[in-house]
Design a protein around this nucleic acid. Structure first.
Lengths: 360, 360
DNA sequence: AGGCCATGAGGGAACGTTATCGCAGCTTGA
DNA sequence: TCAAGCTGCGATAACGTTCCCTCATGGCCT
């Protein structure tokens, strides 16, 4: 085992086929001219040597690696793993591989990851940036001519394509649904990690409209929540906004407990992503609140357990796999010369009505 | 945007610093000799040019890519995404990146994936092989001196390290628990995709012992089930083995329905992985069977929803993240020259008793 | 004062490809 | 019969690194 013989190179092939490396390369790449006879000789040599071209060497000269860099927060989350699956499926169709990195929503890790991927000469980047307001590193990548596609968190500052769902509309629909069921105190669980967004009340100020692409997905979802209230003419009690420090389940559970312990506790709860959904639901479970009688619940992301619990959860579904597939597709199109201004691809969400919402 | 200027090379750095590329390379790599003055000049040049070494070119000469290839069935499954997270975490610590591929449990895809990764010159491979009996391609990789670490499905035929859990013991413990609660008709949900394993009764034959490393994880788990019965002197009714064609949730649900529709239906159900757990639980839910009164249930994998449903599910937990981390660690150790025969790392499982099992 | 050695730095080959260019030798047509 | 074109192939220069070797310089010891 572990025979130390180096694998055959194209020179070995050429020697065996009694041609020059140029000729061998030509039949391999199927370009230029060569006779049928030499083609066969080269192919035979390849066969008998078990020759496989060295992609690294090839990349040196072609200046492409046929590899896409993916930067996500945490591959073990159902959202990201679903998206990444979509990315790999689409990428593979076009002969691209995936180099994967996690950031845990940390901008510094993200910068490191991006640098690493660029150093490895990936042909393009697909990234869910940790902070749409801190994207200088992504702008830099773009300005060097590398293509970037964002997902989940579009940021117009990057000047890159992005694929997301219409977060505002999705959440607005859900909250409107809740409001139409008579709920007036609707709690929302959201992670506003970014300091400048923590003061979410200011989101209300600038028209509540037109600031897409400047805020993170969770802030956009909160915005949808606010707009639904505004549309219905219902005042929002700031204490109903359960803000968690970071993207973690325990934080969401904790915030939910606080929300539900308040004297004027909400009659309905809505969450802004899969972590929040899980944490919030856990907390509700612990408290032994009967759902939907004593509390209505709308989750974010159609996680597979949401149909398993009783009552089954009404949720906002994102087309997870498709988000990834479309992002990869767009990136590859760009690599193939697709020009034009950055495109914002907004995929539709589905509001799946199940059993966790009741009229108050 | 998209300035077409090529990024600076080490030659540019050398020119600006007024040294030779050799010298520039030396300070970059911090080897050989150079004066403090030139060190500073080179570093300054790097700084002002924003030079970043091209990993591809470096790989050409160093013959390493600092990249590990990962071959799994489906990154979107909670098991694999958890393992891959463990892999990336550990790999990153040592400066390795991850090239990710999915096989959907298809041996042909697996071969393609392995070839691709080898062509891309990954330093080593971490793979959950689709079929422990069809591993010629992995043997070949090993025999060319590339290191491979298997996970979830060890196969002694590969001659590679492997990290798994003790599937037999894990399942034996669970089933013994069920038996001790008086259950005599315990259904098991398992995917025996591989034809030669479909005739599982033959697993009983060869001693029921000593064939670790020759069978897939699910077969090993079935084996644990059989051994527990043998230990307790309880005969196994072959009709209690719910075999699904492939690794899919719907197949598991279907098999569960069949099992539960039988006149002499099982009083307990045990599953062999997360897909089976989900599918089986779905079917049980649909049938509105009261758990654990009318049916006891032991799931495989501590999925986060298993504590959310009522009753909470008693499960066999695998240390998912650690499986990945240990696999990566072992591979990196090998790359660092760790010699010795292939090691089989068996991580402990935990049997988490919750509320889904009752005495009959 | 002369020889030696340590120090610092440059030259250049190599890694395995791709692809441009030029050049024989042959065919073709006027 | 000879120019022109075409066909098939080889030489060779990249691509951006690393690192081995060689060499000049200067200081120190005897």
């Amino acid at each position: 085992m572990a025979s130390s013989a180096q694998p055959p190179t194209i020179h070995d092939v050429a020697r065996l086929a009694k041609v020059s490396t140029s000729t061998a390369s030509r039949v391999l790449g199927n370009y230029g001219r060569f006779s049928e006879a030499t083609r066969k000789r080269v192919l035979d040599a390849i066969e008998t040597l078990g020759y496989r071209p060295n992609s690294v060497a090839r990349s040196m000269v072609t200046r492409r690696t046929d590899t896409l860099g993916v930067v996500c927060a945490d591959i073990s989350s159902p959202f990201f793993s679903g998206v990444v699956r979509g990315i790999t499926d689409e990428a593979r169709k076009s002969g691209y591989s995936i180099l994967l990195t996690n950031t845990d929503e940390d901008v510094r890790s993200e910068r490191e990851a991006v640098n690493l991927l660029i150093d490895k000469q990936v042909d393009g980047l697909i990234v869910a940036t940790a902070d749409v307001g801190d994207v200088e590193h992504l702008r830099a990548v773009r300005s060097h001519g590398k293509h970037v596609v964002l997902f989940d968190r579009p940021s117009s500052a990057v000047g890159a394509d992005a694929v997301t769902v219409d977060d505002v509309a999705a959440m607005r629909e859900a909250v409107t649904y809740l409001l139409s069921h008579g709920h007036r105190r609707i709690g929302i669980l959201t992670e506003l990690r970014i300091e400048r967004e923590a003061d979410w009340a200011t989101l209300l100020r600038p028209g509540l409209d037109r600031l897409r692409g400047e805020i993170n997905a969770s802030a956009a979802r909160l915005l949808g929540y606010l707009r639904a209230h505004r549309d219905a003419g219902v005042e929002v009690d700031p204490s109903l906004v359960g803000r968690t420090g970071g993207y973690d389940v325990e934080g969401a559970a904790e915030a939910t407990r606080r929300l539900l312990a308040s004297p004027a506790r909400p009659t309905a709860l809505v969450t802004t992503d899969n972590m929040m959904t899980l944490g919030a639901y856990q907390a509700v479970r612990e408290l032994d609140i009967e759902m939907p009688r004593d509390l209505s619940f709308v989750g974010f992301d159609n996680l597979d357990w949401t149909t398993l619990v009783r009552p089954a959860l009404t949720v906002i579904e994102q087309p997870v796999h498709e988000i990834g597939a479309r992002a990869a597709r767009k990136l590859i199109d760009r690599l193939n010369g697709d020009e034009g201004p950055p495109e914002l691809i907004e995929l539709p969400t589905s509001f799946l009505v199940r059993e966790s919402v009741a009229a108050v």
